[in-house]
Nucleic acid binder design. Structure first.
Lengths: 200, 200
DNA sequence: AGCCTAGTAGACCGATATGTCTAATTTGAT
DNA sequence: ATCAAATTAGACATATCGGTCTACTAGGCT
C-alpha cells in the first residue's frame, strides 16, 4: 500500500455509514442521534457540522440508498445483452439489494420502510416516490426497446405490471428476511417477457 | 332512540379508535401515549387499566386492522357469484381499505407500515406476516376452486403472482395517496384470470 | 515553528417519552 | 341509598430526545 494502512474516513462519511446501518435496522424515528454518533465513533458536534438537523441526515440517507440501488442496477446492466435481460437486470438489482450485508438481516426496501413511517406531506415521501418513478421509467424504456413502437404489448402497461411485482416482492421479502420473493417475482417477470416475445 | 342519544364508549374502545387514527397517520413509534389519550379523551391511567404497555396497545392495533380487513373482505365476498369474482373480491377489499376515512389520507397498508418500523424479531412483524399469509391462503383457495384440481394453471403459483400484485399495489398506492394502483392491480389480476379461463 | 481546519469530549437545555401513584369522582347494579 | 368497579385529573419519576455551547486537541500545509 502506498498510504497509511487504513485511512480514517472523514466524519461525514462515517456518519452516513452508521446512519445507514442504524436507520435501516431499527427505523428512522426510533433511532436517536446518540445511537448514530456512537456507532460512527464521532462527536455530536461533528454531526451538526455536516448536517443541519436529524431530518437533513435522514434526507441524505434516502438519497444515499437511491444511489446505492442505481449502482447495483448499472452493475447488472452492463452484463445484460438483450432488452429482456435489461429488464431482468432491474429484478437482479433488487435481489442484490436483498442479499446485501445488514446488521440484523434484510428487512425490505429501506426507502419504502422510511416512507412508511413518515407522515403525509413530508419531503422524504416525495423523494421515495421519485425513486420509484425512476425505476418504473427504466422498466418502461427497456420494454419499449423490446416490443418496438407498434408491437402488440403495451410497454407502459407491462412496466406497471412489473413495477407492482417488484414492490410487492420488496414488501413480502422484507417480512420473510430472504430474497425468495424477489426471485419469485423475477421468474414471473421472465414468463411475462416470454409471452410478449411469443406474441410478436 | 330507545337509549341515551349517544352512549359514550368504554375507555378501551375509545383508546383503540384513537390509536388507529394516530398510529396510522403518523406512525407507531413517533406517536406518543399522551397524543393517544388526548385524542381518546381518556385519562392516562385508563390506558394502563386496559393495556399493559404501549407495546400491548400496538399489538391490539395490529389485530384490529387485521379484523377490519377481514370484515371488508367478507362484505365483498357475499356479493361474488363465481370463483373469479371471489378472487377479485380480495382486490376490492384492498380498494375499500384504501378508500376508507383517514385523518390525513390514505398512506398504504397499516400493517405493512407498522412492520416497516418494527425491528427484526419483534412479535408485531410475525403478526403482520401471519395476516399476509392468510390473504394469500384465501387467494389460493379461490383459485383452486376456479381451475379445478387438474387444470393447466397452478393455483399456488398464480396466488403468489396475485399476492405480489396486491402488496405492490399497497406500497405504490400508499406513496400516491389514492387507490389508483389498487385498481391497476385489479385490472391485471382480472386479465390473468381471463387467461386461465381461456386456457381451460 | 506557526496556523488553520476538522474533530473531540462532554456539560447543558428544554421538551418529550413511557410508566406509576394518589385521590377524588362518576357510574351501574342491587 | 349503598357499594364496588370504572374512570378521572394530574403530579411525579426517570430516561431519552434533538440540539447548542464551550474548551480542548490532533494533523496537514506553508
Amino acid at each position: 500500500m502506498s498510504d497509511a494502512p487504513t485511512k480514517r474516513l472523514p466524519a461525514r462519511d462515517r456518519l452516513l455509514r452508521a446512519a445507514h446501518e442504524e436507520f435501516y435496522a431499527t427505523g428512522v424515528s426510533s433511532t436517536g442521534i446518540d445511537t448514530i454518533i456512537a456507532a460512527a465513533g464521532v462527536a455530536k458536534q461533528s454531526l451538526y457540522n455536516s448536517f443541519d438537523s436529524k431530518d437533513a441526515l435522514v434526507a441524505a440517507y434516502l438519497t444515499e440508498r437511491h444511489d446505492e440501488w442505481l449502482a447495483l442496477y448499472r452493475g447488472r446492466l452492463v452484463a445484460a445483452t438483450s432488452p429482456a435481460e435489461r429488464v431482468l437486470a432491474v429484478f437482479d438489482a433488487y435481489a442484490d439489494h436483498a442479499n446485501g450485508n445488514y446488521r440484523d438481516g434484510w428487512r425490505g426496501c429501506g426507502l419504502l420502510n422510511a416512507a412508511a413511517e413518515l407522515p403525509v406531506g413530508h419531503p422524504g415521501r416525495a423523494a421515495v416516490r421519485a425513486h420509484k418513478d425512476e425505476v418504473q421509467a427504466i422498466l418502461t424504456a427497456h420494454l419499449s426497446e423490446l416490443t418496438g413502437a407498434a408491437a402488440g404489448g403495451d410497454p407502459v402497461q407491462l412496466a406497471a405490471h412489473l413495477a407492482l411485482l417488484l414492490e410487492g416482492s420488496m414488501a413480502k421479502s422484507g417480512l420473510e428476511g430472504t430474497d425468495a420473493w424477489v426471485q419469485t417475482a423475477r421468474g414471473l417477470a421472465a414468463g411475462l417477457l416470454a409471452g410478449v416475445a411469443v406474441a410478436e
